[in-house]
């Protein structure tokens, strides 16, 4: 991304505004879906899906991750991997516990 060219920057500003509108719209959508009272797994899936889209928009355009350097991608990929480990391994170990069946 070239940040010295004024036209280029103006183009970017238009992108920012589009993203902003999209974020507001998605917020409304997620609130509206919450009013439908879906079953819990479905509601979680939809809400997390929408939040992920919103988060990607913020990270991708406002934090201009779409055109970032390799070093930053590398650091973030590492973080995401460890984040996944931190989130899923405790959940797995919580769901896989020894149950004493024959205790009177």
């Amino acid at each position: 991304m070239d940040f010295t060219d004024i036209h280029e920057i103006k183009k970017h500003v238009r992108v920012y505004v589009t993203v902003f509108v999209a974020l507001l719209a998605l917020t409304m959508i997620t609130v509206a879906i919450a009013q439908l009272h879906l079953s819990v797994p479905a509601a979680v899936a939809v809400a997390i899906f929408i939040a992920t889209i919103k988060g990607s928009l913020v990270a991708g355009y406002f934090m201009h991750l779409v055109s970032e350097k390799k070093v930053i991608y590398a650091a973030l990929i590492l973080t995401v991997v460890f984040f996944a480990a931190l989130m899923w391994l405790p959940i797995f170990s919580q769901s896989d516990t020894i149950v004493y069946k024959n205790v009177p």
Binding site: F82, L89, S93, D96, T97, I98
Partner: peptide, 18 residues
């Protein structure tokens, strides 16, 4: 080193798979 931590917790009732 990030994915070995629960070897400190073998006696907490973790199942055999984990």
């Amino acid at each position: 080193s990030f994915i070995v931590w629960a070897h400190h917790m073998f006696l907490t009732g973790m199942g055999t798979a984990i």
